[in-house]
Amino acid sequence: MKNDIFDFKRFGNYFVTDIKNAIANYGWSMIILIFLGLISFILVGLVNTIFAYNWEDILNGGSIEWVHANVGSRIGSMVGAATILIFTASAKCYGGLTDKNIGSDFLLLPASRLEKFISMILMCCFVIPIVFIMGYLLIDCLICMVCPETGNSIISEVTSALNLILVEGDVPVELIDRIKWTSAIDDTWMIFLFFLLGALVFKKSKASKTFLVGVAITMFTSIVLFILLMPQIDKIDTYYYYNASGQTDEELEIVALNIFDKMMLFDTIFDITINALLLTGIWFKLKTLKH
């Protein structure tokens, strides 16, 4: 008698079906996004080249050298592609759930709610981002191998930049220890989950509506957090630059680090809470979806 809550083999089957479903719904989009690096590389290069030479040279077909897109522009393209990925992946893969036919098929597929939930989260938070990142960076490395003039590959550029800041630069050691490095991952998950929840809540124009709601919430939260926390951040500036109360450097540092610690803690709690809320929302949606 199979467990009604979680069965490993059944979960495996379901996960495979989910992956096939994602490929069918989002496969081509993913490939285009991965190759966006190449496309923008060519387009930016084209624009660069056109702007680098004056008209006579271009029209006369004189010795023109192609001006490649530099690392900065390639990183920018990656960010752009990633943004599109976050906004559209969840809606395309799981948006069908609000449709009567596709949603009914999904709901009645013999797997437990937990299995369907875990599969969905794994897809959105791990499989899709990892596939995108690996694919995109791979193309980027290939571009760099073929055209070395364009500069470092994104990977090496980022690692050397981090190296510069952290190892050789003058970021204080205490700060490095305290920085929450996983913040980027948490935040990315937050946005993916947010758009996933939006895909399950809205029936039409899922990405757009979710985005607008997101903008509204962000504006609201920003204002609230600004009012609450800005005075604390100001204190760090104040203490470091104005030294109004005449404390020693060490005392200042303790105060500043204290504030910094609290900010990091706040960030962690914030991320975990929001993510937990989103996960709960998604779980609840799965439970109560009706057709």
Binding site: D4, K20, N101, L108, L109, A111
Partner: peptide
């Protein structure tokens, strides 16, 4: 409740069926 032990024993064929890319 849509428990798997229930879902495994039932199949629902709706009037309008969805075309899939398979």
């Amino acid at each position: 409740d849509r428990q798997p032990s229930f879902l495994e024993n039932i199949f629902y064929l709706p009037d309008v069926v969805a075309p899939v890319r398979y």
